[in-house]
Amino acid sequence: MNRFLIDYRNSQGTLMRILTAVSRRGMDFQEVTALAQGDRHQVRLVLETHPKQIAQLCRDWRATVDVLEVRQEA
């Protein structure tokens, strides 16, 4: 399992764009938790991915308007 923390501005559709980057690859979500964190929002995703997909996902998320930071949890 891979765990990702994504900080984003809670504008319309940003969370959905983060999620469609996953669903367009036919991957299943093991866990999705989205919460307000101060002046921004954060979503925690748990996914089963292979290394190439991890890099692709992170790049897609970083290219999404209003995504602020993408981190992978150990």
Binding site: Q12, G13, M16, R17, T20, R24, V65
Partner: peptide
């Protein structure tokens, strides 16, 4: 249409 364009538009607003 906002939802329909999420995977293909760079950005959108209702």
């Amino acid at each position: 249409i906002f939802g329909a364009t999420l995977p293909m538009a760079k950005w959108g607003r209702l």
